[in-house]
Design a protein around this nucleic acid. Structure first.
Length: 618
DNA sequence: ATTAGGG
DNA sequence: CCCTAAT
């Protein structure tokens, strides 16, 4: 990969024949060097993130590092540029070129000097384009300047490797002394790769994935100025001395040259000097002869490209994969290296998540602790990543427990326990409200009422204020980890990452909302009662209501046998609530629109009447 | 944009 | 929950 190394050297050393250089470029393995051009035209090493982006972008265009035509891309704003290039191989280049180069003082832009290692894929045209864009001589020239800049720039270091961020500064210093002689990454065992990794990055890694390691190493070294200072370069996944590399190049050049039948080098003989000049002239970006050489280059590339294609392409690990591994890695290293604080923190975090299984189990049978194994494939557990966080334990749990002792039936008990886990005061308010209102109609909730009686005052006062501010209530769930819940979907809008179990609290709010605004006014309810719950769309409310309704009708009959509810495997919605739901269902059809009618219509009205009335209303 | 309903 | 059709 490290074609660049060779390049640098070249600049110092006599670059004897330009053609050779040119060839070399074509034959060289490719290396990504992502840099950004700042306002003053200076080249700033790209951040790991930027690199990632690019990688991602190029992901599909990669093939094996080996046998990759040494093309060097200089493109800015890779995404668009590249796209353009693919579309318009022969045009985009020139125009863009000028405006983009630093000297021109282009605005901040990303420049990708990129002899791509695993590029050379199906996009032959692209390469072609690239060549057109930057005539080899110029390219290499540019490349050199970049190199130099970067190399001397201290900022280059950080750019080296992302996961290393957490590594202790001390051990960060790479130790290339361990990279003696030539190393073929392909032949190394995982362990050896890890060693190499350590040597290269100065930190340990536990990653077992060869691909990843190799990639990381090559990538890292490529971008490492430390390494740049060594006499090694990376080529085809093999770390070799620069000298050897040169030889390689020469050979390859020759070969390719021959195979090209001279087509590859238009100016082969005469323009040698020309090339040299250009190489030494940073400012020479005139697209003058670009076009001419472009075509030839293209041909070469194309052919080479075709050859390479035969090799099977290795799938690059996805960005996410890398990130995750990195994450794990950094955690590991931080655990080792960092102060005990962190460790202890984790220790606390863990138990906490387990402490509240109740909450998770409640309404939906679904365990929802899933986060724990979100790393899935890798088989690694990431229990304490921020994502898991849940609402804090309820402080006022005791007062609620008071309900338990009062000979409640199971259903009631569930209600209270549900309260307990729902966490937060408003829950109480709401729940109590529910209980009161629902009990008032005089349904089958005697036990509950009784149980709550002594608590009435406690809840009662709140009810008053609550009556008017259902909408003001926050969902107890609307805590921070909600952010993570919604995830962008490639094909469509946002998708919820995990099911968000409805808390009784929410259910209550929904029920109350329906009671107030009527079933069907989902957007209203959403706006007023669930304003604080960004998740829970009106559709969600609707769906939930649908479910509740269904559940209520199913469960109500069974409600006689209170113990029944207990038998339910997932006993989500407390019977009282369901009662209320059904009650509302009835009301929806009749009294809901106009309160006055309330009295006449008994709860006797059956589902059918409900539907009728409802349809009439809606 | 909101709703209703099916998947 | 997601998606779609109908309003």
């Amino acid at each position: 990969m490290e074609a660049n190394e060779a390049k640098i050297e070249e600049s110092v050393v006599p670059v004897t024949d330009t053609i050779g250089a040119l060839e070399k470029e074509i034959a060289d393995p490719i290396v990504y060097q992502l840099v950004r051009v700042d306002g003053s035209g200076r080249l700033v090493p790209a951040t790991q993130d930027e690199i990632m982006v690019v990688e991602d972008f190029l992901e599909d265009d990669k093939c094996e590092p080996k046998h990759v035509p040494d093309t060097r891309h200089i493109s800015e704003s890779v995404k668009t540029e590249r796209y353009l290039l693919e579309r318009n191989p022969f045009q985009v280049p020139e125009g863009k070129l000028e405006s983009e180069y630093p000297e021109v003082g282009a605005e901040k832009s990303n420049v990708l000097v990129d002899p791509v290692p695993d590029l050379g894929k199906i996009e032959a045209p692209e390469k072609v384009a690239v060549h057109g864009l930057a005539p080899c001589s110029e390219v290499s020239n540019f490349d050199l300047s970049v190199r130099t800049e970067v190399g001397s720039n201290p900022q280059d270091a950080p750019n080296e490797d992302a996961p290393s961020t957490s590594a202790a500064g001390s051990s960060l210093k790479p130790d290339f002394s361990k990279l003696e002689g030539k190393i073929c990454l392909d032949n190394l065992t995982v362990k050896e790769l890890q060693e190499t990794f350590k040597a290269a990055f100065g930190r340990e890694t536990s990653v077992k994935d060869k691909q990843w390691l190799k990639r990381r190493i090559t990538m890292g070294l490529t971008n490492s100025c430390d390494f740049s200072c060594t006499t090694f370069i990376i080529r085809d996944n093999v770390v070799v001395r620069k000298g050897e590399e040169q030889i390689c190049h020469r050979v390859k050049s020759r070969i390719s040259a021959d195979s090209e039948d001279g087509v590859a080098k238009p100016d082969s003989g005469g323009s040698v000097g020309d090339h040299d000049n250009r190489i030494n002239d940073d400012a020479d970006f005139s697209g003058a002869d670009v076009s001419s050489s472009t075509f030839e280059s293209c041909k070469v590339t194309k052919d080479l490209y075709t050859e390479q294609r035969t090799a099977k392409r290795a799938r690059k690990p996805t960005k996410r994969y890398i990130e995750e591994l990195s994450e794990i890695e950094s955690r590991e290293s931080s655990e080792k290296l960092s102060s005990p604080d962190k460790t202890s923190r984790y220790r606390f975090a863990c138990p906490e998540t387990h402490k509240r299984p109740t909450k998770n189990v409640r309404s939906n049978a679904r365990p929802l602790v899933t986060r724990q194994d979100s790393l899935g494939g890798s088989g690694v557990q990431i229990p304490f990543v921020s994502r898991i966080r849940r609402s804090r334990p309820r402080e006022n749990f005791m007062p609620l427990l008071k309900l338990q002792p009062c000979g409640m039936d199971m259903s009631t008990r569930q209600v209270s326990s549900a309260f307990a886990v729902s966490g937060r005061q408003e829950d109480d308010k709401i729940n109590n409200d529910l209980i009161n209102t629902s009990s008032s109609p005089g349904w089958t909730q005697q036990p509950l009422i009784a149980a709550c009686e002594e608590d009435k005052h406690y809840s009662g006062m709140k009810i008053a204020e609550l009556e008017n501010d259902i909408e003001l209530n926050d969902c107890s769930e609307n805590n921070s980890d909600d952010n993570v819940v919604t995830v962008p979907t490639q094909k469509g809008g946002m998708r919820r990452k995990h099911h968000r179990p409805w808390t009784i609290n929410e259910v209550v709010k929904l029920v109350e909302g329906v009671a107030r605004y009527g079933a069907g006014r989902w957007s209203e309810i959403k706006r007023l009662a669930f304003a604080s719950c960004p998740y829970r769309t009106s559709v969600d409310l609707k769906d939930k209501w649908r479910n509740l309704l269904k559940a209520s009708f199913v469960q109500l009959p069974a409600e006689k046998g209170i113990l029944n509810s207990r038998k339910q495997a997932s006993v989500p919605i407390p019977a009282p609530i369901l009662s209320r739901v059904r009650e509302l269902a009835d009301m929806q059809g009749q009294i809901q629109p106009i309160l006055s009618t309330g009295k006449s219509s008994g709860h006797s009205s059956s589902g059918r009447s409900v539907h009728e009335a409802r349809s009439g209303f809606l």
